[in-house]
Design a binder for these strands. Structure first.
Lengths: 184, 184, 184, 184
DNA sequence: CATGAATGAGGATTCATTCAT
DNA sequence: CATGAATGAATCCTCATTCAT
C-alpha cells in the first residue's frame, strides 16, 4: 500500500537523521536504513526531498500533538493544563527523543518554526488563564515562546544525554512556570 | 594580512549562513559573498570547512561573551547579575542577530552545545545566589538550561521577525526569571 | 548489467593508463575514454578510485596467471616449466602489453609488488628443481626475483618499442636462465 | 647561492618522494620538507615541476654513474668489470636506496628509461667481452637489459625491505650473470 | 632572493532526481 | 510498484603557477 511504504520511508528518515544528523541524511542513507534497494523508490513516493522532510515533521508533530492534547484535556483549569502541557512534553521528548529531534532539526533548518501552531495554542491557554485570574498579567506570546523554548532545551539535553532524569526536569520546570505565571 | 582575509572570510560565512542557511553555505557561496575569485582561497586560509565554522563560532562567542560579561560585572549581587545577563543577551541578540544565529546554527549541527560554557557559568551564579539566600532552592543546572533556552528562543524569534520589540522581551523575561528564582 | 559496465570502465581505465600514464588517468579521462557522460557513473560502480585500480590489477593478473599456468602445466619437469614460464610471460607481455603495463604501473604506485604471488610460486618451482637435481644450488628467492625482474624489463622495453622482436627475447632469456640455473 | 638552494630543494624532493611517494610529492610537501615557507620559491628556482624532477634524476644518476664507474675502472677485463658493475650497483642501491628509488620512480612515470645510457654502456661492455672471447655469444642488448632489470629488482626489494642482506644479493647475482655470460 | 597571498583548473566523490525495464 | 542504472550539478579540497611586496 502507498501509505505503508511512505511510512516505512518516513521512519527510516527519522532513524537516519537521529543516527547521522540531518546534513548526512541523504536518500542513499535513508534507503539503506529502510532496506530499500534503490533511492528511486523514495523519489517515487515523495515529490522531492522537501516533501519527505515535511512529512516527517507532519507525522511526528501529529503524534506529539495527540499525546499532549490527551494529557491536557484530562485536566481542568489553565494552571493545571499548563502543568500537564509541560509534563506531557517532557515525557514525550523522553520516550520519543529521536522522533522529536528529527522533526526539530528539519524545522530549524527550514527556518520554519514547526512548533509554531503549538505556541499559538499555548498563548491562547495563557490568555484564558489571565482572564480567569489564575495567571498574572504578562505577554502571553512571550511566555508561550519561553515555555516552548525551555521544552526544546530539554529535548536538546536529551539528545546529548539520553539517560538524563526527565522526572527531575518535569518537576523543576513545572515549578518554574508555576512561579512565573501564577496570579497575585 | 593573514588576519584580515580570515576575518573577511569569516564575515562572509556569517552573512551567507544568515542569508542562505547553514546547509547552503558552501565555499562557493561564501567566496561569492566575500568577493573572492576562488574557493581555493578559503582553503588556503582555513585547514578545512570545519576550521572555518569553528572560527565563526569562536569569533562570535568571544564578542558575545565580552559584551555580556561587561554588563554583568557592572552589577552586584546574583539577582542583579542574572537580570543583567538576560538583558545583555537579548540586546546582543537584537543587535547582532545574524552573527549569533550563524554561531548557533553551526553549534547545533555539530550536536555540540556551543553555549555550554555559558550554561556552566550561569549555573554557578545561580548556586551563589542560593547560598546568599537571594534565590530559592532549585536545580541550578536545570534553571541555567532554562534561561539559556529561552534566550535562544528569543534569537530564533528574531530570526523570523527581525523587527520584534526586544525591549518587551527583555522586561518580560527578566520578570519571568525573577519570579522563578527569587527566595522565599 | 552490472558486470558489463564495470568491465567497460576497467577497460577504459587500462586504455587511459596506457595512453596518458597512471598519473593522468583521472575519472574524467577514464569516463571520456569509456564514452560515459559523467564521472559519477564510475563512482556508482566502484567504491572509490582505489577499488577501480585494484580491479584493473585483479582482472589483468587473472588473465595473465591463467595464460601462464596453462603453458606451464603442459610441460613436465622444473627446467621445462621454467622455460615455459619465461616463454609464456614474454608472449603475454607482447600480446597484451597495455594491459600488463597498466597493472604493473598501479602495483608500483602502491608500493605493492602485485606480482608477489607469482614470485613465491616461482621460487617454489626453483626449489623443487633443486631437490630433483635439475638446478644447481642458489638462493631460490633471489633467482625468482631475478626472473620476475627481467620479465618486467621486457615489458618495459615493449612499452617503449611495441614492435620489438619478442621471439628474440624469448630465446635469449630462456637460454640465460637455463645457464644460470642448471645443475652441475 | 643559486646552486645551494636548488640542491636543498632537490634533496627535499628526494626525501618527499621516498616518504610519501611520487604521486604525493607536491610542491607544498616538498617545501615543507625543505623548511621553506613558500612553494613560490621552488617555482622561482625551477622552471616547472618537470624541471625539478629532471634535476632529481640528473643529480642522482650522476652520483650513481660516478660511483659505478670508479668501481669498474679499478678492474680489468670485461668479466671482472661486469662483476664490479653488479657489485657497485647493489652497493649503491643499498647505501642510497631512497635517492635511487626517487630517480627510478620519476623515470618510470615519464615512461623515459632513465637508465638507458647505462644500458647502452653495459651492452657495449658485453660486446667487448664477446670479442675477447670472455663471454659467449648472446644478444648484448637483451643481456644488458636483463642485468639492468635485475638490479632494478634489487632496488625494488630494498624499497620494501630496507634491511635485506645485500651481500647475499651481490654474490647470487654476480654468479648468476657469470654463468649466463661466460664463454664456452 | 624570499615570502605569502592569490588564482583557476582539476581532483574524487556525493547528491537528488529521472527513466527504462 | 520496484529496481538499478544513469545523469549532471555541486561538494570540498589540492595543485602548480604567478605576482606584488
Amino acid at each position: 500500500m502507498r501509505t505503508a511504504r511512505r511510512s516505512q520511508i518516513v521512519e527510516a528518515a527519522i532513524d537516519t537523521i537521529a543516527t547521522e544528523g540531518l546534513a548526512r541524511a541523504s536518500f542513499a542513507r535513508i534507503a539503506r536504513t529502510a532496506g530499500l534497494s534503490s533511492t528511486g523508490l523514495i523519489s517515487y513516493h515523495f515529490a522531492g526531498k522537501q516533501e519527505l522532510m515535511d512529512e516527517v515533521v507532519r507525522v511526528v508533530l501529529a503524534e506529539f500533538a495527540a499525546f499532549v492534547e490527551e494529557r491536557m484535556t484530562a485536566e481542568t483549569g489553565p494552571a493545571a493544563e499548563l502543568r500537564a502541557f509541560i509534563v506531557a512534553n517532557v515525557e514525550f521528548a523522553s520516550k520519543h527523543r529521536t522522533r522529536l529531534l528529527a522533526a526539530l532539526d528539519i524545522a530549524r533548518a527550514g527556518r520554519a518554526p514547526a512548533f509554531g501552531v503549538d505556541v499559538a495554542g499555548l498563548a491562547e491557554l495563557l490568555r484564558v488563564g489571565q482572564r480567569y485570574g489564575e495567571f498574572r498579567f504578562f505577554d502571553a506570546d512571550v511566555m508561550a515562546m519561553a515555555v516552548r523554548s525551555v521544552l526544546d532545551g530539554v529535548l536538546n539535553r536529551l539528545a546529548v544525554d539520553p539517560d538524563a532524569d526527565h522526572g527531575a526536569y518535569t518537576e523543576e520546570l513545572a515549578t518554574l512556570f508555576e512561579l512565573a505565571t501564577r496570579g497575585a
